[in-house]
Design a binder for these strands. Structure first.
Lengths: 208, 208
DNA sequence: ACAAAAATTAAACATTTGTTTAAATTTAAA
DNA sequence: TTTAAATTTAAACAAATGTTTAATTTTTGT
């Protein structure tokens, strides 16, 4: 049972699901794109839905390990922690945007409640950790009295809004029709600078 | 050709598409829920895709007219204009959340490029208007030198993040499993206060 | 009340869907 | 090399899909 071939099918599935959605992608589409026989998907994963579950399970680390960097460094101020989180989120979401687009689509629908719950569980661990940092920052008077949960929603929401549509993103930012903003270092910088600047103004009790 | 029945089918379609997605909803699902014969959808709209187009066309006003309130009042400061925009967005998105969820899903996929372009066109009009307000506010030194486009992305992104999953939203905010946060006035207030407070800190050059 | 138009229905249509089968091929172990 | 297991294949499967048909009912205008 070659794990390499399974990973290849999963990677192809991520690309296709991001483009056409899970329901909009047929196993024949997927098999053709991955250059494998239609029966191979069921042979390796059992069913289309189990392939989806495997996809989430193997790639959930993109989300899960997001805070690991931070746990190493303990001698950081609360805002320095937030800076690291912002930088990690921007980098990881841009680097794995197809996967995050698939997750976004899946969160939007209510069919497949088990899968929905799995993704929510993974996300919540991050949210809780970040919320605790913000709450601690507020107690130490380093941060203003902000809404911790919705502050998190603003950070990730900004990224998801930009990730939502390449077409909208290009036209919104005045880029050429066919441009791929997501791979431009300049765009990553712009995105990071905006969120950083906004959170600095939003969070810090004593503006620098 | 009773417009009432067409609107009833469209309203049912919005609910179902929001729940299961466009591809995940069959015409038989839709017909059963709307309590009409399967053939009626094609009789009224021609095809499933044309129903979707009609859905967007008739409900796009939720997005399109968002700035009308503001155009009436001319004697507002730039931040007062932003306050009105925030209030309008929060209210309209919460009131028509199923429709916005469907739009969000459609923006995420790249099939149906024409429909994608239609939605993008409508959105861009609002974005342009808001960007111009922010740019003007910056020139008049009322606002700090922020990124106008990404500032808009943060406002709408916060709302979309919260709208994305009722389940995530409930668990994130510590609400009961089965709660419907979107209809709670308290939740609307919390959402509005957060965005208002964040934008105040983010935008205003001279903090109050 | 009548005839034409519009609306509604159940049934059938051709495709496409996810999945399974059974045979053929390749790989791995003895 | 031989044999069993794992992989790959093309074909077939039943179910579900969007759509159309043709008959029937309801509505509308005269």
């Amino acid at each position: 049972m070659s794990d390499q071939k399974k990973q290849h099918i999963i990677q192809t599935a991520i690309t296709l699901f991001a483009e056409k959605g899970y329901e909009g992608t047929s196993i024949r589409d997927l098999a053709k794109r991955a250059k494998v026989n239609v029966a191979m998907v069921n042979y390796y994963f059992g069913s289309k839905e189990k392939l989806f579950e495997a996809l989430v399970a193997t790639r959930a680390s993109y989300i899960r390990d997001l805070l690991d960097e931070m746990k190493k460094n303990t001698a950081m101020s609360h805002f320095e922690k937030m800076e690291l989180i912002i930088q990690q989120y921007v980098t990881r979401i841009l680097e794995n945007r197809a996967f995050f687009q698939v997750m976004q689509q899946e969160m939007l629908v209510t069919i497949r409640p088990e899968l929905n719950r799995n993704i929510t569980d993974v996300l919540l661990k991050n949210i809780d950790a970040i919320v605790k940092i913000i709450q601690s920052g507020i107690r130490k008077k380093e941060f203003r009295k902000v809404d911790p949960q919705l502050t998190f929603a603003s950070i990730i929401g900004t990224l998801q809004q930009v990730l939502m549509s390449r077409n909208l993103c290009n036209r919104m930012l005045g880029l050429p029709e066919k441009a791929d903003p997501y791979t431009h270092p300049k765009f990553k910088n712009r995105l990071h600078n905006h969120i950083h600047q906004m959170m600095q103004a939003h969070l810090l009790a004593h503006q620098p």
